[in-house]
Amino acid sequence: MEDLKRTLKEQIIESLNLEGMSPDDIEDTAPLFGEGLGLDSIDSLELMVLLERNYGIKIEDAREGRKVLESVQSMAEYIKEHRTV
């Protein structure tokens, strides 16, 4: 799980082009949107694509997507349970 979270943080930094950030700067449970990393709605689309590309996960329900994308912790848990690749 720890390895998955670190990989996920690296993928988030790369796909969202978060210049000057390292995985250590992102807390596992910190909110990704709003107060935490300050991501926005376009970033949420990028993260959905990240899940599909790297883990074969397609989230069709927006409400479910909102819960999954709350934090790195929630994403990692969802990936662990639903990944197909």
Partner: peptide, 13 residues
């Protein structure tokens, strides 16, 4: 590369 699947929105926008 991705065979028209899972395209990111930013580059297109």
């Amino acid at each position: 590369k991705l065979e028209e699947e899972a395209l990111t929105p930013t580059a297109f926008i």
